[in-house]
Amino acid sequence: MFNPNATDIDGPILFSPENEKELDTLLQRYPYKRAALLPVLYMAQAQFGWLSPGVMAYVAQRLELPEGKVLQVASFYTMFDKKPAGRHKIEVCTSVPCCMMGGFAVVRHISEQLGIGVGETTADGRVTLLEAECLAGCGYAPLLQVNGEFHENLTPERIDALLATLR
């Protein structure tokens, strides 16, 4: 059963008052509760940092869904974090065509600078490095996204300058 005092994240697992309001708005958008699952998972991830088993159970309870369904959906989509991620998520595009324009060189450069591999997070929890599939910016390769913002036509200097801004 769902336990609001579960310890897999810090603090109790309850939506904030603002998110309770947001939940009401979201539920009105769809003819039934289940359809709100993706936006509610996003909201939960933003509030709790990641989708821990406790958080997923809470979402299941709020949307009156079996826990297994929530886990299934959270696992299918790559943007839901099933383990804690760094404060900044860097996603480097390595799809065709970015891969022929230096996408992998960008990955190697960041990996060397931060001392982490793809899918890993720096020990201080600052940055997670990921490879992404086509990010809809192919004409401006190589490129990456950090926290949803695009950085295009990358050079080693621009990457270093960007890394220095991520605290």
Partner: peptide
Amino acid sequence: DEGEPGTFKDR
């Protein structure tokens, strides 16, 4: 859901 590699117009 623009995601077909090589596509960057809808964005």
